[in-house]
Design a binder for these strands. Sequence first.
RNA 1: GGAUUCUUAGCUCAGUUGGUUAGAGCACCUGCCUUACAAGCAGGGGGUCACAGGUUCGAGUCCUGUAGAGUCCACCA
Length: 852
Amino acid sequence: MLETKYNHKKVEEKKYEKWLDKGYFLSGDKTKTPFSMVLPPPNVTGKLHLGHAWDVTIQDIIARYKRMDGYDVLWLPGMDHAAIATEAKVVAKLKEEGINKYEIGREGFLKKAWEWKDEYAKNIRNQWAKMGISLDYSKERFTLDEISTKAVNYAFIKMYNDGLIYKGKKIINWDPEAKTALSNEEVIYKNVEGAFYHLKYYIEDSNEYLDVATTRPETLFGDTAVAVNPKDERYNKLIGKNVILPIVNRLIPIIGDEHADMEKGTGCVKITPAHDPNDFEVGNRHDLQRIVIMDESAHMNENALHYKGLDRFEAREKLIEELKEKDLLIEIEKITHSVGHSERTGVMIEPYLSQQWFVKMRPLADAVLANQKTEGKVNFIPERFEKILNNWMNDCYDWCISRQLWWGIRVPAWYKDGEMKVQVESPGEGWVQDEDVLDTWFSSALWPFSTLGWPDNTELYNRYYPTNVLVTAYDIIFFWVARMVFQGLEFTDKIPFNDCLIHGLIRDKDGRKMSKSLGNGIDPMDMIEEYGCDALRFFLTTNSAPGQDLRFDEEKVKSTWNFINKIWNASRFVLINTENLKEYDFKNLTFSDKWILTRLNKTIEEVRKNMDKYEFHNVGSELYSFIWNDFCDAYIEFSKFNMDNISSKSTLLYVLENILKLLHPFMPFVTEELYSNLKIKETESIMISPYPNVKEEFNFDDTINVMEDIRNFITKARTIKKENNIKKDAKYKFESDNSDAYILISNTLKLTEENKIDQNNDDYNELIIDSKSNELQNTLIYYYKESLEDKNKVIEELKKEKEKLENSISRREKLLSNPGYVNNAPSNLVEEEKRKLENEKLTLSEIIKKII
RNA sequence: GGAUUCUUAGCUCAGUUGGUUAGAGCACCUGCCUUACAAGCAGGGGGUCACAGGUUCGAGUCCUGUAGAGUCCACCA
């Protein structure tokens, strides 16, 4: 028999291994309809955080539900090589060991990186196991494995041949720490303290100068013009003249360009085409020279004259000193401005002119936008997230996909004598492969189909693609979701997933983002240790509406634990009382059996409806109130009165069995444990049992209102009894027009035979509790000794109730006499109003009698 | 500047296509060790749904405006 308390550690032990051994997570049953999802591959850089725990639990709920409901579920796991992030971590680790990556070379470094990957992949798999998620490990993939590499190479070459990938020299976001280019999405803008340095650019052959303000004075070495707005009357007459570039003393032209904003700063802008994206454009318009003044680690080069070799910030400092000395500095204006930082290394981005590979976005984005207007669009849940996709697709810029790293898929391009060939294999002797690797997201973008063996025409691909649903957080929509959609459309002519279920981000108790720097992060593994995986899962998935952020509140995890303990104990009760039951027998159902079976049907219906809509918080509250309020508080209590009835025992066990199944996707471990203790069950594991369906023969709809009346009457009786201090052994008289109600009420209120009296003895006063409705009429009279004071109190109470009823009745009458309501409102609501009105009138008439 | 979410009980959140006395958990008050569960049971109190208008027979829900909080994108010489 079960222990008296739920012990999550014991319950969650060894079950996962068993499921794995039995092969329950495997896909491939061809007799069933396929259902597929790919797991958003976590980076192999660390451990899973609460956000992952949330994300994987949602998916596992879907997977388990669909599997139980008869689908052949493929939930494909995998991990992401996370080029920059991993390379940065491996470099840091090597540094600790005193190794420089360039010393050991590309091959040596990659060996180390693979070792790192293997170690972290193992950790991640352990954490997946702890979360209880039902992944098909036989299909596990890695973004750098052969299957993925093949797909990436194919995609790259195809896009190159179709003109969708090109190589070009442009200003890109450069990370001087990782020494690589980044895409715009990998740049995070932060507000930092900085300054506007106002510099004197003397006009040629004159004592006058232009006040040119810049936040990055060290870039002046790359200046090839100063721009003013052609409409700016202060300066436009100077267009065509030259200014003397400070320190360098080179002559550079004053040009007229719309880019110079008259309202902003001084109206004069220095133009550095090799170090600023806007200036790059200006440079193109005016055919200006591009002078690169820094090397790849953001140290000044020979173009910066005597500053050569200095770091950019050091150079800035020294340059300012020199400008001051030479009286070329007008002022330093302190400002706070937003500056791009590398998402991974955290260093300030340097806009940098370099040769990179790009994906031409416009045609791909337009295809997505066009597709979202069709029936075959990606269905976002909640819908509003489609706008984020569309906004991003509307104004996007070409995607820089080359990275100057080693950890990644190498660009399949070969060079010899100024010639370039794009292909996988070396074209032959003397050809050298491009040193760059591709952006991680380029491989992730192909994930839903590359994992299934595309571009080959595989059985997996044909059976499971497109996938049914993708689950991820909203912060990843443009990084990943958008890219999968356009690559899916480009290569497979299909959207990669029909539904895209978006959840929010996890915040701490005070609503702040969880981050390392704040130190407010919570390790899901600690929560599992403390409260169990089932409690964590249920908390994560039932405490917010789709798309909303979730505040992590340990108290709520704790109260979920209590809920599980409640289920545990209810199960104990059922198991203890049904030990001898060999098979279900529903021939002799009592009134409360019929009621709970009907309520179970309604619950199944609601739960299924909400499961299909991914509204898990609704499923949660539906199950919570059914289990706790209906099953435990009411039904189990009532069942105690008919323990000799085999049909009642059957009902107890049957309802429990169904509760466990309904809960299983949320709480896989405890439901498996309890299910394994059931005497009657269809399957050896709850995982492979069929998900509950509504059973028409268990619909006894007329029990619902009657039971509601009975329970209300019981509550009312208890309240009045408590308020009036009626003793347990008070004499009473009880009448009911319904024998089921009579039994349930007298048993529950403990109305014993010995306290029952027929006639009022003059010594007693009467306390009448009654309820009148069309379904049920009860009168319970307690006889007791009371003071006059008590009696007046009772009258007061009755008067209050009378007043309440009168208000309610007049409100309902007004409502029902309103033709607008009666004609327009749904008829079942109108009927319900009428019924309640009738019942209230009956009750009121009784109260009036008593007051008189 | 553009987009978007949020404002409901002391706290954290639900509240489906508008349906008329707004729900839950936790916290609070009262009484119970009634053997499935005191991590529980039985009762109870607590909300002019941010504010102001509008549409409607009917608004927490739809529309307009205001205030506050958050997030994303763009710009930031």
